[in-house]
Amino acid sequence: MKGKITEWNDSKGYGFISALNGNLRVFIHASSVKNSNHRPRLNDEVTFEVSEDNRGRFNAVDVTIEGKQAFPLTVLFGCSYLVFACAALIVFGRPLFIIPLYIGISLITYVMFSVDKKAAQTGQWRTPENSLHMLSLFGGWPGALFAQSQLRHKSKKQPFKAILWITIILNISAFLWTFTPSGITLIQRISSVFY
């Protein structure tokens, strides 16, 4: 069903959708929105399903905000970093094994976020947050940012978000360290094992 948000209280995260030419008024909560990079706003066009609660009130579920969505800045940051890292490795003649390492661990991290979200929804065994943070620390953080954006999983929970950003800063610092004399020596030793 299609409709338009005609009332919205952003601080409380709920409002109402007008549908069927104004003949249907449906309650919407921010948690019912899927695949959107922003919270609902007044006058947003939406598509949704209707459910009825135990008191006979209509609630919107599986809400999708229509129109062009802004590209998430966190995903843009992760992609930009990977481009920068690739360019730096090529320009400075460093071993290129770091590139597939970042991509591989990012894919694993994304999959782990997906598995954890499914486990959370079905009440099954969850992936420990420490495991997700370790993957991010070792280079999987671009996958973590993409998973947060696409899966809407662990995207609002604190202190998870704060710790994730600490792992990102530590990982980037470690990458930059590999361009120092002591970092170059270590990378050469690791490279000699593989080549």
Rank of each mutant, 00 (worst) to 15 (best):
L101Y: 11
K156E: 15
I172S: 03
G22S: 04
I103S: 03
T167I: 03
K156I: 12
L24C: 00
L24G: 00
G139H: 10
A19Y: 05
F27E: 10
A147N: 10
P100M: 06
W8T: 13
Y102H: 08
S32L: 00
L89W: 12
K117T: 04
F160H: 02
F92S: 07
I105D: 08
F179E: 01
V63F: 06
N59L: 11
S51W: 00
H38E: 07
S136D: 04
D53L: 01
Y195F: 09
F58D: 01
I90W: 13
G78H: 07
L24I: 00
F92T: 09
N130W: 13
I17S: 11
L101T: 09
N21R: 03
T47F: 05
F146P: 03
S155H: 14
F48P: 03
V61K: 13
Q148H: 08
R57A: 09
R94W: 04
E52M: 10
Y14C: 14
Q124R: 15
N171P: 03
S173H: 12
V91L: 12
L137M: 08
I99E: 10
E129G: 13
I17H: 07
F175R: 05
G143T: 12
V26N: 02
I98G: 04
Y102Q: 00
K12I: 04
L73D: 08
E7T: 15
A174V: 06
S131T: 15
Q69W: 11
C79V: 15
A85W: 08
G183D: 05
F77M: 09
I190D: 12
F71I: 09
N171H: 05
I169W: 08
W141D: 07
F97T: 06
I168D: 00
V83G: 06
A119R: 13
N23H: 03
G183I: 01
F77A: 15
Q69N: 06
G123F: 02
F48T: 02
A88F: 07
S131W: 13
V83P: 12
L101E: 03
K117N: 02
D62H: 09
G93F: 00
D44M: 09
W125A: 15
